[in-house]
Design a protein around this nucleic acid. Sequence first.
DNA 1: GTCTATATTCTGATAGAC
DNA 2: GTCTATCAGAATATAGAC
Lengths: 180, 180
Amino acid sequence: MAGARDRVLDAYETLLIDHGAGAVTLDAVAAEAGVSKGGLLYHFASKDALVSGLLDRLRERSAADADAIRSAPDGAVAYYVRTSAPGGGVPGGVTRTYLAVLRIADGTETGRAVRDALAAVDADAFAALRAELHDPVLAWLAQLVGDGLYLRTLTGTPLPAGIGVEDLLTRMRAYLDAVG
Amino acid sequence: MAGARDRVLDAYETLLIDHGAGAVTLDAVAAEAGVSKGGLLYHFASKDALVSGLLDRLRERSAADADAIRSAPDGAVAYYVRTSAPGGGVPGGVTRTYLAVLRIADGTETGRAVRDALAAVDADAFAALRAELHDPVLAWLAQLVGDGLYLRTLTGTPLPAGIGVEDLLTRMRAYLDAVG
DNA sequence: GTCTATATTCTGATAGAC
DNA sequence: GTCTATCAGAATATAGAC
Protein backbone atom coordinates (compact mmCIF):
# COMPACT_ATOMS: atom_id res chain seq x y z
CA MET A 1 0.00 0.00 0.00
CA ALA A 2 1.27 3.44 -0.96
CA GLY A 3 2.11 5.86 1.87
CA ALA A 4 0.04 8.98 2.34
CA ARG A 5 2.92 11.08 1.08
CA ASP A 6 2.93 9.29 -2.26
CA ARG A 7 -0.83 9.44 -2.53
CA VAL A 8 -0.67 13.20 -2.04
CA LEU A 9 1.86 13.57 -4.84
CA ASP A 10 -0.25 11.34 -7.10
CA ALA A 11 -3.27 13.53 -6.36
CA TYR A 12 -1.25 16.68 -7.06
CA GLU A 13 -0.18 15.31 -10.45
CA THR A 14 -3.72 14.29 -11.32
CA LEU A 15 -5.13 17.71 -10.53
CA LEU A 16 -2.38 19.53 -12.45
CA ILE A 17 -2.90 17.40 -15.56
CA ASP A 18 -6.69 17.11 -15.53
CA HIS A 19 -7.71 20.48 -14.14
CA GLY A 20 -4.73 22.76 -14.58
CA ALA A 21 -2.62 24.77 -12.17
CA GLY A 22 -5.48 27.12 -11.42
CA ALA A 23 -7.59 24.34 -9.91
CA VAL A 24 -4.85 23.12 -7.59
CA THR A 25 -5.75 24.19 -4.07
CA LEU A 26 -4.72 22.50 -0.87
CA ASP A 27 -8.35 21.57 -0.31
CA ALA A 28 -8.61 19.94 -3.73
CA VAL A 29 -5.34 18.02 -3.37
CA ALA A 30 -6.36 16.78 0.08
CA ALA A 31 -9.77 15.65 -1.20
CA GLU A 32 -8.25 13.88 -4.21
CA ALA A 33 -5.70 12.14 -1.98
CA GLY A 34 -8.34 11.13 0.54
CA VAL A 35 -6.85 13.05 3.48
CA SER A 36 -7.82 16.18 5.31
CA LYS A 37 -6.12 19.51 4.72
CA GLY A 38 -4.40 19.19 8.07
CA GLY A 39 -3.16 15.74 7.17
CA LEU A 40 -1.78 17.04 3.91
CA LEU A 41 0.00 19.91 5.66
CA TYR A 42 1.65 17.46 8.01
CA HIS A 43 3.47 15.89 5.07
CA PHE A 44 3.96 19.07 3.06
CA ALA A 45 4.05 22.14 5.25
CA SER A 46 3.20 24.56 2.44
CA LYS A 47 2.33 24.74 -1.20
CA ASP A 48 6.01 25.34 -1.99
CA ALA A 49 6.90 22.16 -0.13
CA LEU A 50 4.43 20.33 -2.33
CA VAL A 51 6.19 21.68 -5.41
CA SER A 52 9.58 20.65 -4.02
CA GLY A 53 8.26 17.17 -3.34
CA LEU A 54 7.05 16.83 -6.91
CA LEU A 55 10.41 18.04 -8.26
CA ASP A 56 12.22 15.45 -6.16
CA ARG A 57 9.99 12.76 -7.61
CA LEU A 58 10.66 14.10 -11.12
CA ARG A 59 14.42 13.87 -10.64
CA GLU A 60 14.22 10.31 -9.34
CA ARG A 61 12.01 9.16 -12.18
CA SER A 62 14.09 10.96 -14.79
CA ALA A 63 17.22 9.09 -13.71
CA ALA A 64 15.34 5.79 -13.86
CA ASP A 65 13.92 6.69 -17.27
CA ALA A 66 17.35 7.52 -18.67
CA ASP A 67 18.38 3.96 -17.78
CA ALA A 68 15.23 2.63 -19.43
CA ILE A 69 16.03 4.58 -22.61
CA ARG A 70 19.52 3.06 -22.73
CA SER A 71 18.34 -0.49 -22.20
CA ALA A 72 15.19 -0.39 -24.36
CA PRO A 73 15.08 -3.56 -26.53
CA ASP A 74 13.66 -1.64 -29.46
CA GLY A 75 16.25 1.10 -29.29
CA ALA A 76 16.54 4.45 -27.55
CA VAL A 77 14.79 6.56 -30.20
CA ALA A 78 11.76 4.28 -30.46
CA TYR A 79 11.42 4.19 -26.69
CA TYR A 80 11.65 7.94 -26.33
CA VAL A 81 9.23 8.73 -29.13
CA ARG A 82 6.68 6.12 -28.06
CA THR A 83 6.66 7.13 -24.40
CA SER A 84 6.27 10.79 -25.40
CA ALA A 85 3.16 10.19 -27.48
CA PRO A 86 -0.33 10.52 -26.00
CA GLY A 87 -1.10 7.39 -23.99
CA GLY A 88 2.43 6.07 -24.38
CA GLY A 89 3.66 6.78 -20.87
CA VAL A 90 4.87 3.90 -18.71
CA PRO A 91 2.99 3.62 -15.36
CA GLY A 92 5.21 5.05 -12.64
CA GLY A 93 7.51 6.52 -15.28
CA VAL A 94 8.61 10.12 -15.86
CA THR A 95 5.98 11.03 -18.43
CA ARG A 96 3.10 11.76 -16.11
CA THR A 97 5.25 13.62 -13.58
CA TYR A 98 6.92 15.61 -16.36
CA LEU A 99 3.55 16.65 -17.79
CA ALA A 100 2.41 17.73 -14.34
CA VAL A 101 5.54 19.78 -13.69
CA LEU A 102 5.19 21.49 -17.09
CA ARG A 103 2.02 23.09 -15.73
CA ILE A 104 3.84 24.86 -12.93
CA ALA A 105 6.79 26.10 -15.00
CA ASP A 106 6.91 29.88 -15.23
CA GLY A 107 9.46 32.64 -15.67
CA THR A 108 9.54 33.79 -12.05
CA GLU A 109 12.53 33.60 -9.77
CA THR A 110 10.77 31.04 -7.57
CA GLY A 111 10.02 29.10 -10.74
CA ARG A 112 13.74 28.68 -11.31
CA ALA A 113 13.83 25.40 -9.37
CA VAL A 114 11.09 24.08 -11.63
CA ARG A 115 12.92 25.11 -14.80
CA ASP A 116 16.17 23.65 -13.50
CA ALA A 117 14.48 20.31 -12.81
CA LEU A 118 12.93 20.26 -16.29
CA ALA A 119 16.28 21.14 -17.84
CA ALA A 120 17.87 18.21 -15.98
CA VAL A 121 15.26 15.85 -17.41
CA ASP A 122 15.97 17.11 -20.92
CA ALA A 123 19.70 16.72 -20.40
CA ASP A 124 19.27 13.18 -19.02
CA ALA A 125 17.25 12.11 -22.05
CA PHE A 126 19.61 13.83 -24.47
CA ALA A 127 22.59 12.01 -22.99
CA ALA A 128 20.73 8.69 -23.17
CA LEU A 129 19.80 9.29 -26.82
CA ARG A 130 23.38 10.21 -27.66
CA ALA A 131 24.50 6.80 -26.42
CA GLU A 132 22.66 5.37 -29.43
CA LEU A 133 22.97 8.20 -31.94
CA HIS A 134 26.49 9.46 -31.58
CA ASP A 135 25.86 12.53 -33.73
CA PRO A 136 24.53 15.25 -31.36
CA VAL A 137 22.47 16.94 -34.08
CA LEU A 138 20.68 13.67 -34.86
CA ALA A 139 20.15 12.98 -31.17
CA TRP A 140 18.65 16.40 -30.73
CA LEU A 141 16.39 16.01 -33.76
CA ALA A 142 15.10 12.71 -32.38
CA GLN A 143 14.52 14.27 -28.99
CA LEU A 144 12.65 17.21 -30.50
CA VAL A 145 10.28 14.88 -32.35
CA GLY A 146 9.49 13.21 -29.03
CA ASP A 147 9.13 16.59 -27.33
CA GLY A 148 6.73 17.72 -30.05
CA LEU A 149 4.59 14.71 -29.18
CA TYR A 150 4.87 15.68 -25.53
CA LEU A 151 3.34 19.03 -26.42
CA ARG A 152 0.42 17.21 -28.03
CA THR A 153 0.03 15.07 -24.94
CA LEU A 154 0.12 18.21 -22.82
CA THR A 155 -2.62 19.98 -24.72
CA GLY A 156 -4.74 16.95 -25.54
CA THR A 157 -4.68 18.03 -29.17
CA PRO A 158 -5.56 15.23 -31.63
CA LEU A 159 -2.84 13.87 -33.91
CA PRO A 160 -3.13 14.38 -37.71
CA ALA A 161 -5.71 11.97 -39.09
CA GLY A 162 -4.40 8.86 -40.79
CA ILE A 163 -0.86 9.02 -39.45
CA GLY A 164 0.41 7.18 -36.42
CA VAL A 165 3.49 7.24 -34.26
CA GLU A 166 4.72 4.05 -35.92
CA ASP A 167 4.74 5.82 -39.30
CA LEU A 168 7.02 8.39 -37.75
CA LEU A 169 9.34 5.73 -36.38
CA THR A 170 9.49 3.83 -39.68
CA ARG A 171 10.56 6.99 -41.50
CA MET A 172 13.06 7.97 -38.83
CA ARG A 173 14.58 4.50 -38.75
CA ALA A 174 14.99 4.45 -42.52
CA TYR A 175 16.90 7.72 -42.37
CA LEU A 176 19.01 6.77 -39.37
CA ASP A 177 19.96 3.44 -40.95
CA ALA A 178 20.97 5.27 -44.13
CA VAL A 179 23.25 7.81 -42.44
CA GLY A 180 24.46 5.83 -39.43
CA MET B 1 -1.80 53.85 -30.25
CA ALA B 2 -3.14 50.52 -29.07
CA GLY B 3 -6.63 50.48 -27.58
CA ALA B 4 -7.17 49.56 -23.96
CA ARG B 5 -8.63 46.23 -25.02
CA ASP B 6 -5.44 45.24 -26.79
CA ARG B 7 -3.28 46.45 -23.93
CA VAL B 8 -5.26 44.23 -21.57
CA LEU B 9 -4.70 41.18 -23.78
CA ASP B 10 -0.99 42.03 -24.04
CA ALA B 11 -0.80 42.25 -20.25
CA TYR B 12 -2.66 38.96 -19.89
CA GLU B 13 -0.16 37.25 -22.22
CA THR B 14 2.80 38.73 -20.38
CA LEU B 15 1.57 37.55 -17.00
CA LEU B 16 0.79 34.06 -18.27
CA ILE B 17 4.23 33.67 -19.83
CA ASP B 18 6.37 35.35 -17.17
CA HIS B 19 4.51 34.46 -14.00
CA GLY B 20 2.31 31.49 -14.85
CA ALA B 21 -1.42 30.91 -14.69
CA GLY B 22 -1.40 30.98 -10.92
CA ALA B 23 -0.28 34.60 -10.82
CA VAL B 24 -2.97 35.81 -13.20
CA THR B 25 -5.53 37.72 -11.17
CA LEU B 26 -7.76 40.50 -12.41
CA ASP B 27 -5.83 42.88 -10.17
CA ALA B 28 -2.52 41.82 -11.68
CA VAL B 29 -3.75 42.05 -15.28
CA ALA B 30 -5.23 45.49 -14.65
CA ALA B 31 -2.01 46.73 -13.06
CA GLU B 32 0.13 45.34 -15.90
CA ALA B 33 -2.18 46.94 -18.48
CA GLY B 34 -2.20 50.25 -16.67
CA VAL B 35 -5.94 50.34 -16.01
CA SER B 36 -8.07 49.84 -12.93
CA LYS B 37 -9.88 46.62 -12.21
CA GLY B 38 -13.17 48.33 -13.05
CA GLY B 39 -11.75 49.53 -16.33
CA LEU B 40 -10.63 46.03 -17.19
CA LEU B 41 -14.04 44.59 -16.37
CA TYR B 42 -15.66 47.06 -18.71
CA HIS B 43 -13.82 45.47 -21.64
CA PHE B 44 -13.92 41.90 -20.34
CA ALA B 45 -16.88 41.30 -18.05
CA SER B 46 -15.37 38.20 -16.43
CA LYS B 47 -12.27 36.09 -16.35
CA ASP B 48 -13.88 33.72 -18.84
CA ALA B 49 -14.42 36.64 -21.20
CA LEU B 50 -10.71 37.39 -20.91
CA VAL B 51 -9.91 33.82 -21.94
CA SER B 52 -12.34 34.03 -24.88
CA GLY B 53 -10.71 37.29 -25.99
CA LEU B 54 -7.29 35.68 -25.96
CA LEU B 55 -8.56 32.67 -27.95
CA ASP B 56 -10.03 35.03 -30.56
CA ARG B 57 -6.67 36.73 -30.88
CA LEU B 58 -4.97 33.32 -31.19
CA ARG B 59 -7.25 32.28 -34.05
CA GLU B 60 -6.68 35.54 -35.92
CA ARG B 61 -2.92 35.34 -35.55
CA SER B 62 -2.82 31.66 -36.47
CA ALA B 63 -4.55 32.33 -39.76
CA ALA B 64 -2.10 35.14 -40.52
CA ASP B 65 0.82 32.92 -39.55
CA ALA B 66 -0.32 30.11 -41.84
CA ASP B 67 -0.10 32.62 -44.70
CA ALA B 68 3.36 33.67 -43.54
CA ILE B 69 4.50 30.03 -43.48
CA ARG B 70 3.33 29.56 -47.07
CA SER B 71 4.99 32.70 -48.37
CA ALA B 72 8.24 32.50 -46.40
CA PRO B 73 11.18 33.22 -48.76
CA ASP B 74 13.37 30.65 -47.03
CA GLY B 75 10.73 27.92 -47.18
CA ALA B 76 7.94 26.74 -44.91
CA VAL B 77 10.00 24.36 -42.77
CA ALA B 78 12.74 26.88 -42.02
CA TYR B 79 10.16 29.51 -41.10
CA TYR B 80 8.26 27.18 -38.80
CA VAL B 81 11.31 25.83 -37.03
CA ARG B 82 12.94 29.25 -36.61
CA THR B 83 9.84 30.93 -35.23
CA SER B 84 9.30 28.07 -32.79
CA ALA B 85 12.75 28.36 -31.27
CA PRO B 86 13.41 30.47 -28.16
CA GLY B 87 13.60 34.11 -29.21
CA GLY B 88 12.51 33.33 -32.77
CA GLY B 89 8.98 34.62 -32.56
CA VAL B 90 7.86 37.41 -34.86
CA PRO B 91 6.52 40.50 -32.98
CA GLY B 92 2.73 40.43 -33.20
CA GLY B 93 2.85 36.84 -34.49
CA VAL B 94 1.25 33.69 -33.12
CA THR B 95 4.19 32.48 -31.07
CA ARG B 96 3.70 34.62 -27.99
CA THR B 97 -0.07 34.19 -27.93
CA TYR B 98 0.29 30.43 -28.44
CA LEU B 99 2.73 30.17 -25.54
CA ALA B 100 0.36 32.14 -23.34
CA VAL B 101 -2.65 29.98 -24.24
CA LEU B 102 -0.63 26.82 -23.54
CA ARG B 103 -0.59 27.88 -19.90
CA ILE B 104 -4.36 27.82 -19.58
CA ALA B 105 -4.91 24.50 -21.38
CA ASP B 106 -6.32 21.83 -19.08
CA GLY B 107 -8.46 18.73 -19.30
CA THR B 108 -11.65 20.26 -17.93
CA GLU B 109 -14.86 20.70 -19.85
CA THR B 110 -14.50 24.48 -19.75
CA GLY B 111 -10.98 24.00 -21.05
CA ARG B 112 -12.40 22.43 -24.20
CA ALA B 113 -12.55 25.79 -26.01
CA VAL B 114 -8.86 26.28 -25.23
CA ARG B 115 -7.90 22.85 -26.53
CA ASP B 116 -10.00 23.35 -29.65
CA ALA B 117 -8.28 26.65 -30.39
CA LEU B 118 -4.84 25.07 -29.93
CA ALA B 119 -5.84 22.15 -32.16
CA ALA B 120 -6.89 24.62 -34.86
CA VAL B 121 -3.48 26.30 -34.70
CA ASP B 122 -1.75 22.94 -35.09
CA ALA B 123 -3.99 22.04 -38.02
CA ASP B 124 -3.35 25.42 -39.70
CA ALA B 125 0.41 24.98 -39.46
CA PHE B 126 0.24 21.34 -40.58
CA ALA B 127 -1.73 22.31 -43.67
CA ALA B 128 0.73 25.10 -44.46
CA LEU B 129 3.70 22.75 -44.09
CA ARG B 130 2.04 20.17 -46.34
CA ALA B 131 1.88 22.75 -49.10
CA GLU B 132 5.68 22.50 -49.23
CA LEU B 133 6.25 18.90 -48.12
CA HIS B 134 3.58 16.89 -49.86
CA ASP B 135 4.28 13.75 -47.84
CA PRO B 136 2.16 14.01 -44.67
CA VAL B 137 4.60 12.00 -42.56
CA LEU B 138 7.45 14.34 -43.48
CA ALA B 139 5.28 17.38 -42.83
CA TRP B 140 4.39 16.03 -39.42
CA LEU B 141 8.00 15.24 -38.57
CA ALA B 142 8.99 18.80 -39.47
CA GLN B 143 6.16 20.19 -37.40
CA LEU B 144 7.11 18.03 -34.40
CA VAL B 145 10.69 19.32 -34.50
CA GLY B 146 9.32 22.85 -34.34
CA ASP B 147 6.90 21.87 -31.59
CA GLY B 148 9.75 20.35 -29.60
CA LEU B 149 11.45 23.74 -29.76
CA TYR B 150 8.20 25.33 -28.65
CA LEU B 151 8.34 23.18 -25.55
CA ARG B 152 11.83 24.50 -24.86
CA THR B 153 10.60 28.04 -25.34
CA LEU B 154 7.71 27.30 -22.98
CA THR B 155 9.90 26.02 -20.18
CA GLY B 156 12.85 28.33 -20.72
CA THR B 157 15.08 25.28 -20.77
CA PRO B 158 18.50 25.89 -22.38
CA LEU B 159 19.30 24.22 -25.70
CA PRO B 160 22.06 21.58 -25.87
CA ALA B 161 25.44 23.29 -25.76
CA GLY B 162 27.26 23.73 -29.05
CA ILE B 163 24.28 23.05 -31.32
CA GLY B 164 22.08 25.70 -32.87
CA VAL B 165 18.81 25.81 -34.71
CA GLU B 166 20.66 26.35 -37.99
CA ASP B 167 22.45 23.02 -37.51
CA LEU B 168 19.04 21.42 -37.25
CA LEU B 169 17.86 23.11 -40.42
CA THR B 170 20.98 22.18 -42.37
CA ARG B 171 20.51 18.53 -41.51
CA MET B 172 16.78 18.60 -42.23
CA ARG B 173 17.29 20.32 -45.57
CA ALA B 174 19.90 17.76 -46.62
CA TYR B 175 17.45 14.96 -45.91
CA LEU B 176 14.48 16.65 -47.51
CA ASP B 177 16.47 17.45 -50.66
CA ALA B 178 17.57 13.80 -50.86
CA VAL B 179 14.08 12.29 -50.59
CA GLY B 180 11.93 14.97 -52.08
C1' DG C 1 -0.10 11.18 12.04
C1' DT C 2 -4.39 12.80 11.23
C1' DC C 3 -8.28 15.52 12.27
C1' DT C 4 -11.46 20.03 13.12
C1' DA C 5 -11.84 24.79 13.73
C1' DT C 6 -10.35 29.26 12.95
C1' DA C 7 -7.60 33.45 11.58
C1' DT C 8 -6.23 36.19 7.77
C1' DT C 9 -5.48 37.45 3.28
C1' DC C 10 -6.79 37.46 -1.48
C1' DT C 11 -9.97 36.95 -5.59
C1' DG C 12 -13.72 37.67 -8.67
C1' DA C 13 -17.42 40.46 -9.33
C1' DT C 14 -20.98 44.41 -8.43
C1' DA C 15 -22.57 49.22 -7.67
C1' DG C 16 -22.39 53.54 -8.63
C1' DA C 17 -19.70 58.20 -9.09
C1' DC C 18 -17.43 60.89 -12.60
C1' DG D 1 -15.02 54.49 -20.72
C1' DT D 2 -12.72 54.60 -16.60
C1' DC D 3 -12.57 55.06 -11.83
C1' DT D 4 -13.23 53.92 -6.36
C1' DA D 5 -15.48 51.38 -2.86
C1' DT D 6 -17.16 47.32 -1.30
C1' DC D 7 -19.00 42.45 -0.65
C1' DA D 8 -19.24 37.39 -0.60
C1' DG D 9 -16.62 33.52 -1.13
C1' DA D 10 -12.32 31.00 -1.43
C1' DA D 11 -7.41 30.46 -0.48
C1' DT D 12 -3.24 29.53 2.53
C1' DA D 13 -1.85 28.59 6.81
C1' DT D 14 -2.05 28.05 12.09
C1' DA D 15 -3.62 26.10 16.60
C1' DG D 16 -4.67 22.61 19.08
C1' DA D 17 -7.63 18.23 20.09
C1' DC D 18 -7.37 13.27 19.49
